[in-house]
Simulated assay, not measured.
Amino acid sequence: MNLSIRPRRNRRSSAIRSMVRETVLTPGDLILPVFLHEDEEDTPLSSMPGCTRWSIPGLVKEAGEALAAGVPGVVLFPKIEESLKSSHGEESYREDGLVPRAIRALKEAYPKLCVITDVALDPYSSDGHDGVVRRDKNGELEILNDETVEILCKQALCHARAGADIVSPSDMMDGRVAAIRAVLDAEGFTDVLIMSYTAKYASSFYGPFRGALDSQPKEGDKKTYQMDPGNIREAMRETLLDEAEGADVLMVKPAGPYLDVISKVRENSTLPVAAYQVSGEYLMLKSASAAGWLDEKGIVLESLMGIKRAGADMILTYFAKHAAKWLAEKS
């Protein structure tokens, strides 16, 4: 053994470790996903302990606290009343709908807050799918791509008019990035970014989220449009397509089980890469911490560091507000 070479010298003190640290996680890397509804009361979520379905006033307060902690942006996920849902999700682009009103309230309260909106039909669909549903000649469920894209364009435009900084199509329909970019540009919203769910997998980690929004499919699954968990080359194909179609940010979802995909997207694109630490990941960490098996602060920050180390420039996480505060304590 050559003991003149001692890697431990670079770990000798906190000062040295800080100077040689290769990956640094900051509050500015984090985005807070928030749930909202029409009710006047804020409702804690049993499926996601520590998370809440907010009224608009509650949402404004929560976003303000996150911003004060150093989190620069929030992404909005609405729970839509059953009576407002339809097969074509017309509620998704109503100008005085829940999301446009929430955007305006947030931008009025915090002009510097980055407001991101989810662009998809599943919260608004009476079928619970991300697209328009019909039966094929064999009676099988079919999700219509091009008809769905037309509606997504209306939804994205509605959000841009309300003041959204970023629209984030999560539907995985073909061609929707190019279509949305064309509509936004034609209406003068050339500065509105598109954060595309580039590699959104048909994952089992979404269950608590669907419970929070009551957006689970009424029939069938999402495997004809969300990606197969076994595929990574397909993610590269989606990366190249989204980049060519005008996406500004590329997203991988989920994050933790797909660190290799995050890394591969990072290697194959110069665009910023986002990763979504989804509800199932959140619930596993939260539950194990609540049971005393894990230290919540330590395990959350380590999980987020791993996602950033894999290549993510920004991380959507339900821990964002608390993680930002913990990071401030460390500094």
Rank of each mutant, 00 (worst) to 15 (best):
S55C: 10
G230V: 13
Y225S: 05
S204P: 03
I16L: 15
I262D: 09
S303Y: 02
E281I: 10
F205N: 09
A105P: 01
K107W: 00
E238Q: 15
G89T: 05
R309V: 08
S279M: 06
P7Q: 12
V273M: 01
S170A: 12
M195Q: 04
P272A: 03
R101W: 11
L241F: 12
A179N: 08
A102E: 00
Y206E: 04
L59C: 04
I143M: 10
M251E: 00
I151P: 02
E234G: 12
L141I: 07
I166S: 01
Y124C: 01
M284D: 11
I31F: 06
K286Q: 15
A66W: 09
D242E: 03
N145E: 07
I299R: 12
G256Y: 14
T23A: 12
I262L: 03
M284S: 15
V75W: 06
F209C: 04
I299W: 06
Q155A: 03
R21F: 13
D130K: 01
D185T: 13
V119M: 02
R134M: 11
K253S: 09
P208S: 03
A186E: 15
L141M: 11
A323G: 10
W326P: 00
M227C: 07
L193G: 07
D146V: 12
K112L: 15
P44I: 12
L25Y: 01
A182Q: 13
R11Q: 13
T239S: 14
M172C: 06
R21P: 11
K264L: 14
D171M: 04
R134P: 05
Y197S: 10
R6M: 14
L141P: 01
Y258N: 01
Q155Y: 13
D185F: 05
Y282N: 07
K107I: 01
L240Y: 14
E41Q: 14
K107S: 00
G175M: 04
N138Y: 14
R181I: 10
L294A: 09
M172K: 02
P254W: 00
P44N: 14
S47H: 08
G58C: 04
L144N: 03
Q216W: 14
L76A: 08
K107D: 08
L285S: 02
V119R: 07
V192P: 10
E82A: 14
V119Q: 07
D228E: 08
G70H: 05
Y206L: 05
L316P: 07
Q277T: 11
V132W: 10
R8K: 14
S125A: 00
A156T: 03
K321E: 03
K223S: 15
A68S: 13
L271V: 11
L259R: 05
K154W: 10
M172L: 14
L25V: 08
